[in-house]
Design a protein around this nucleic acid. Structure first.
Lengths: 142, 142
DNA sequence: ATAATACTTGACAAAGTTAGTAGGGTTTTA
DNA sequence: TAAAACCCTACTAACTTTGTCAAGTATTAT
C-alpha cells in the first residue's frame, strides 16, 4: 500500500544529482539520465515541473544544465514531492480540490488527516543536504 | 500523493461498524452497507479478506453477521490495511516480493524505508477501540 | 554566422491498477 | 423448507501511471 509514483522517486534522485553540482556546476539532463537510469524524455517532464516551481533553474546552450535555485539544506523532500505528486492526501475527502461530503460523520477522517500530517512533517525535515552528505541518522532518530 | 485505496478506507470503516457490535452482536453486511454507504457486493470482497486473515468471523443464517475475532484494542489499523492493501512499500524496490536491483547504490532507499516504517509504526498504535471510543488525542500527541 | 548543445512543450499511447458489478453458489436456522 | 446471510469467481469500465515521440526554442563556442 501507499506506493510512491516513479515520477516522485525519479524527481528526488534527479534533484540529488543536481544538488551534487551545487553551487556552480550545471548538471545536464543527459548526465542525470545516465547516472540514475531514467530516460531523457521522462526527465524533461519532471525537471520542467520542478523548474516552474522555482526549485531549480536551467542554463541553456553548450556547457549548460540545471542548477539548484536554493541551498541544498533549504530544499526538503516534501517540497519536491509536493510539486510532482501534489499534496499528501490519503483520501479524496482530504484533497483540497475535492472536499469531504460526510465530514464529521466520518469517523476515520481525523485518522487519515493525522497520518498525512505526520508524513508531511517527516519529509519536511529531510533535505537534499542530508542526502548528499549521507547524513541519514536523522531518519532513525525522528 | 500517497492515496489510500477505497478498499482500505472502506475496510477500516466496516471494521468500525463491526467493532461497535463487540462482543456479541453480529453485524450484517447490509447494515454496514447502509451506514457506510458502500455496496454489499464490494463489502463482501473486503470482509472476505479480513475473515481469511482472522480479524473477523462470520455467523451464517438468519440473525447472523460478522463479529470481531479479537478485542477492539487488539486490532490495529495497520493490521486491517495490511490485509487489504499489502505491506507499506513506498517503492517497488522495498516490496518484499520484488526486491531492489540497485540496493546500496540507491541514495533514496533508506529514506523511503524510514518513511514506510514511520507510517506503519503510527498505524500500529491506533486501534479499533480508539475509533469506537472517539479517543483521538493519541493522534495529536504522537 | 552557424552548428552543436541543451532545454521546452504538448500530444499521445501502452500498460497497469482500481473500483466496482454481476451472477451464481453454499450454509444455517427459524 | 424458505428466507437470511455469507461465499466465491469472473469480468469490465474508468482511471492513473509511465513513459515515448516529435517538433520546437534558446544559447554559445568557434
Amino acid at each position: 500500500m501507499l506506493r510512491l509514483s516513479t515520477k516522485g522517486q525519479y524527481g528526488v534522485r534527479a534533484m540529488y544529482e543536481i544538488a551534487k553540482g551545487y553551487p556552480e556546476t550545471p548538471v545536464t539532463i543527459k548526465e542525470i539520465s545516465e547516472k540514475q537510469d531514467v530516460s531523457v524524455a521522462y526527465l524533461e517532464q519532471i525537471l520542467n515541473k520542478l523548474r516552474k516551481a522555482g526549485l531549480i533553474k536551467s542554463i541553456k546552450g553548450p556547457g549548460g544544465g540545471y542548477l539548484l535555485e536554493k541551498k541544498p539544506e533549504e530544499v526538503s523532500i516534501a517540497a519536491i514531492l509536493n510539486e510532482l505528486e501534489g499534496p499528501v492526501a490519503l483520501t479524496s475527502c482530504l484533497d483540497p480540490e475535492e472536499g469531504c461530503v460526510r465530514v464529521d460523520s466520518c469517523v476515520t477522517h481525523l485518522l487519515w488527516k493525522a497520518l498525512g500530517e505526520k508524513v508531511e512533517a517527516f519529509l519536511k525535515t529531510i533535505t537534499l543536504k542530508n542526502l548528499v552528505s549521507g547524513d541519514l541518522d536523522k531518519m532513525k532518530r525522528k
